[in-house]
Amino acid sequence: MDRHPYFIQSYCIIRNHTIAINGHPYLAVEHTAPLHDFLRAAYRQLGIDYPKFYKMDGLCKAIFIAVELMARASGPFENDTALVFSNYSSSHLSDSKHAQDISDEANPVASPATFVYTLPNIAMGEISIRHQLHSENVFFIFDSYLPEFLVPYSHAMLDDGKASSIISGWTEVTAKRCDVFLYHVGQAGHIPCTVEHMKRLYQGQERK
């Protein structure tokens, strides 16, 4: 049961080569464009100078963009804003790349720049640096987006006073597909943070 007075302060969906912030379209590109190009186009549209972005893998890039847009909508974030992320394939994008690097017949060499991204929580580290968040980070691995777990988990953290607000959601990024749904939950906002609302938002059926 959802009995806590917590609300969605902003949310971002990156899916099918489109980005929407609080239900409003931000960017859409050709479906045929490679993921890489799509995320770069989004970065350029942000109009910021953050060269570290180019070093990130696809998972980090997508999360970086979503959180950047959310910061504009409901930021700046308090520095105790916790991060509770989840996905299915962990850091599979970079894992595959590293596995390929070290299996290369001609030149089997590992790259530190790739290896560092073979951890899903690196994205939370990137976000913490960018937004100066000194907070708790947890990365869960689930079969699919699981608001039945994430919503009560976030509420418990807020109830315990371990964070003033939380950025949480689903961050599945593979070579073929980007399915990112992140939301900023706290005391302010209009959409109640309930399992039902979060399901509908994820499916794109509710607008602010």
Partner: peptide, 8 residues
């Protein structure tokens, strides 16, 4: 549990 927010 806190992040350094310093380096990855």
């Amino acid at each position: 549990s806190y992040n350094d927010a310093n380096h990855i």
